[in-house]
Structure formats: C-alpha cells, structure tokens
Nucleic acid binder design. Structure first.
Length: 558
DNA sequence: ATTGCTGAACGG
C-alpha cells in the first residue's frame, strides 16, 4: 500500500532526525496523546498574536490601482554595467478583495433572526453553528466566484488534516497566519529577492492590467530561469477537474539535488519492469514526463529554442538527460528534518501538484478562457496605456544602450526584446497568455530534448526560520540556514489519486476525514482540538480498543 | 499564493 514510495525518500541532513511518527505509535500511546490534547489543547498556539487585524496590510498597502514589481541593480559590473529590472506582481489586491468577501460571508451568515448582526463575538460563534446546517459543498461556500479560486494550498493542506482545514474555513474563512508563518514568509522573500531584485510599484488601471501583470511576472520568471538557471516564486495556473487551480512554485533550477536518485528514477521510467517498479502503472499510462531519446537533435524547428535552453547545453556536456528541478523550501522552528513518511505527505503532494501544473502549462494544455472566465476578465480588452507605459519605463535601463563607457547592453539581455514593444504587441490578456505559452514551450520544451523537461526528482529543502543562538556578539545561526533536504520521485498514479480524493471532499461527495490515531500528535498544536468532533470519536475508538485489548490480555493470562 | 506543524530532557 505504501502509497508513494517505490524508492525510499533520500535525505541529506545536517541534523538528521529520522523518527517517523507515522509508524511506531501504538494505540495506547495514541490514546494518551489524544487525551493530552484534551487537557492542554492550546499549548503551542499563540492565540492573541496569531490574530491579525483585517487591515493588516494597510500600512504597506499600495495605491489600490497598482501592483508591485521587482527591480535589481546589477552588482557584478563586468558585463552588466547597466541595470537589470525584474517585475513581479504582488497579488495583494486580489487577495484582499477575496478576504473581504469571505468576511462578508461571515456576516451574511448573521441573517439568522435571533442575533444582532454587528456583534463580532456573537457573529463568530453563530456562524459556526450556522455552518453546520449549511449543506453546500466547501467548494461552493468558499471557492466559488467571486471568492478566490482553488489553490494548491487548498488541495494540499488537507493532507495534514482535513478536519483542521475545514474548521479554519468555516470559522475564519481562511487559515490564520502564525508567527512561524511570518518568519517563513520573510525567509522566502529574501530568497526571492536574490533572484528577482527588490519590489517596484507598477500602476494599473483595470483588473485586466492587474492580471496581465501577473502573467508578465511569470514570463519574467521563465526568462530569468533560462538566463540564470534559477527562478523563484513562479506563478502557475491550471484547471483540475474543471476547477481553476493556482499556485506559486517556490523554486525551479538547473542543478540536480541528487544525481543518483535521479538516475534511478529515470531508469525506472525507461524500464518499468526492472528494479523497484511500483504497482498499478499501466504501460499505456506512462507519466507525461517520460521522454524517449528519439528526435533529440532533429525535431526542433526553431533554433533559438535549443540555443536558449540550458537543458540542451547540459546534454551536450553530459551523458545524462538534463532537466529543471522543482524544489520547495520549508522553514522550520527546529533544526530537525520532519520524518520521511506521513509527516511529509503534504509536501510530497504539493510538489507533485506543481509538477503536474507545470507540465500542462509546458504542453499548452491549460484552457486560458476558463481562467479568465473564473476571474470575470475580458481576455480581449486592451491593457491601459498607463500600465503599458509603466512596464516600458520599468525596464528601460536594461534595454537602452548603456551610458557607461565600458558598457553596452548586458550579454544576457541581447536576446530580449524591448518590453514596451513586446507589451504593445501583446496588449490583451489573450495575447499575453500566448506569449506566456511561448515562453513555457521555450523553457520547458516537450519535444526535442533528451530527457524530461521537468525532472521527476522533486525536492523539499528545509531551512531554519530564525536566528537562533548567539555567543557573545557572534550570531551562530542565521535565519534561513540550511538544515537538510529530502528528495522523492514524482508518481502520477499517487498524485492523481490524491487529487481525485481531495476534489471529492471539496465537492462534498464524501465526509471529512481527520487524522488517524497514529497521527494524534497533530492535535497537540491544533487550535481546534478542544472542540474537534473527529478527535472525540477517535478518542472513544481508542478507548474501546485498548479496553478490548486489556480484556483479551487478561483472558489469555488466565 | 504562500507562509508552518512531529517538546526536550530524562532514565535505562
């Protein structure tokens, strides 16, 4: 059964801690854990500081009609004497809009006649009561227009505990950010700026402008990937079982995190019969990332596709297929790695889902109209002059002939078009989407390259969340220090099955499942533990079982 | 969108 591991998880760790909580906890211990959760349910939850005001972002909020971009001054001045600009949309407005809607629903719930609608406490309590009687699916209640679209997080978080995610949604309409999450975000932001540069504000007029900026940022992300072999925080869109799903891929790079494991995986894909092959794979259902060695040098019509593709260069130098590697960076409070089994399931699913979404974008299989429709966008509306001009201005330094004496245009920019011209040529969402598709095809060609464009070797990288200790004035450990990493293979059957199962839950086709007894440790830090219906039934079940066991033990002793 | 989540010190 072991769902997702034909190969063992490979772990490289500085502070290895391999204990797998998913395996060796017996029922009695699990029962004790569940009971503990009862007596100290909130021990690891800082309730007060978790709650953030609705207008949390007010202080930093941009003008409503603006987005944020990134801009970077080149530091190694040899061939980059002019500067490089990068843009990146901050989707804050979209997010805020949808959060407001969610809270609106919280209020709408208060139309129950017995209660004053504008009393926050009462409204919260009753909204939970009311939710119990709401028979609509979670999808309808929380992820249907005009609320935000389904996200990778939405599909993956239930792998930790569906019941917890459901409580979060029905109580707050979202998951509340903890201090640990904020630390994580700042580590991520720093990593992103290493690649994209600092944020720059872009003015937008229409919602099409704002979505266009997101697409533009994704295009930039792909170009950065081709030029530098590394990109971070790449936005992806997809449609899963008819639902629009969006996500942000932490990191894609050209450096292979584990050559041996990759070789083993590729060998498995090429030769399913041999070695540690998994069950359930039918030969007519090979994953889309399988590639043969044929047509390697012959199939591409477009020379620049290959020239621009580091994967191509890689194959010239080495005898192994070269790919892009998807990675997710997780910051942690402790210096230990999570166990390789059940504790890693959410991360596995997250990375495999990114792999799926990236592959279908690379194959131009994503129906853009569905996405524009989901956000009520007019795919043929022209971007505003303001927006087009802003993008043109933003990047001007990178493309105009440099004023520096030794300068000229940076080498890596030569292949780039002037962004103003480019945006003018792709001045609607439909056209800009086409450009995005071209960039995907260029970066991750599905034909003509030796090996899968996106490696089936997926990796989670763990880093510390904060500066830990000091000795005197010496900082011993900085925030973001590497703890270790774990790699594992993409498995189509596993992620497909998982997606089907979670979508059934979102659609209300099956009941919510909480954690198994073996995973009762999760309850210890869950803010909903105290009132959790699932946990209650599990405690009873555990109690019943341990009674049964001690009875039969007594019998056998006699 | 994402962000994070599995005490530590102890005794044997």
């Amino acid at each position: 059964m072991s769902a997702y591991s034909p190969h063992q998880d490979s772990a490289t760790s500085i502070a290895e801690n391999g204990s797998d909580y998913g395996s060796d906890v017996d029922d009695t211990t699990a029962y004790e854990l569940l009971s503990q959760a009862e007596s100290q349910p909130l021990r690891h939850v800082v309730l007060e500081s978790i709650e953030e005001p609705l207008s949390e972002d007010d202080s930093t909020r941009q003008h409503p009609n603006s987005g944020v971009s990134h801009m970077q001054q080149s530091l190694d001045g040899v061939r980059q004497s002019s500067f490089k600009t990068r843009s990146h949309l901050d989707a804050r407005e979209f997010r805020e809009a949808s959060i407001e809607v969610e809270y609106d629903e919280g209020n709408r719930v208060t139309f129950s006649p017995s209660r004053a609608p504008n009393e926050p406490q009462a409204s919260r309590a009753t909204s939970v009561e009311f939710d119990k009687n709401d028979t609509r699916s979670l999808l309808e209640r929380f992820r249907t227009r005009p609320k935000k679209a389904l996200s990778v997080t939405d599909l993956v978080s239930p792998a930790w505990c569906e019941q917890q995610y459901e409580y979060s949604l029905t109580k707050y309409g979202r998951v509340r950010r903890t201090p640990a999450m904020k630390q994580g975000s700042s580590v991520h932001k720093e990593l992103e700026e290493q690649v994209r540069g600092v944020e720059v504000v872009i003015e937008t007029v229409s919602k099409e402008d704002r979505f266009g900026l997101q697409i533009w940022n994704a295009i930039e992300g792909l170009r950065i990937l081709r030029e530098t072999g590394l990109t971070r925080e790449l936005q992806v869109w997809g449609v899963v079982e008819g639902e629009v799903v969006i996500g942000i891929v932490d990191e894609i790079s050209t450096s292979c995190p584990d050559e041996n494991m990759e070789a083993a995986i590729l060998e498995d894909l090429r030769n399913p019969k041999s070695g540690s092959q998994r069950k359930n794979r039918k030969s007519d259902q090979l994953p889309s990332d399988q590639r043969t060695l044929t047509n390697f040098l012959t199939s591409s019509q477009n020379g620049s596709v290959l020239e621009n593709n580091p994967a191509f260069l890689g194959t010239l130098q080495q005898d192994k297929p070269s790919s892009y590697y998807v990675k997710d960076i997780k910051t942690r409070q402790s210096r230990t790695l999570p166990g390789p089994g059940s504790p890693s399931r959410p991360t596995h699913m997250q990375l495999m889902l990114y792999h799926r979404l990236l592959s279908s974008l690379a194959a131009n299989e994503v129906p853009a109209e569905k996405i524009f429709e989901r956000y009520s966008l007019d795919q043929n509306a022209h971007f505003s002059d303001k927006f087009i001009a802003e993008i043109g201005n933003l990047n001007i330094g990178a493309y105009a002939p440099s004023a520096d004496q030794d300068g000229g245009v940076p080498l890596e920019m030569i292949q780039r078009q002037d962004p103003l011209t480019e945006l003018l040529q792709h001045n609607t969402l439909a056209l800009l989407w086409n450009l995005l598709m071209t960039e995907f095809a260029r970066t991750l060609p599905t034909q003509g390259v030796n090996g899968p464009p996106i490696s089936p070797l997926l990796t989670a990288e763990f880093r510390t969340a904060s500066a830990k200790s000091r000795r005197g004035d010496d900082v011993i450990e900085e925030a973001g220090t590497l703890i270790g990493q774990r790699s594992f293979p993409f498995e189509a059957a596993v992620i497909d099955g998982y997606i089907r199962d979670e979508m059934a839950w979102w659609k209300g086709e099956r009941e919510t499942k909480g954690v198994e007894v073996e995973e009762a440790y999760k309850c210890r830090m869950c803010e909903f533990a105290e009132g959790c219906v699932w946990r209650k039934t599990k405690v009873e079940e555990g109690l019943r079982k341990s009674k049964l066991r001690s009875e039969s033990r007594r019998k056998s002793e006699v």
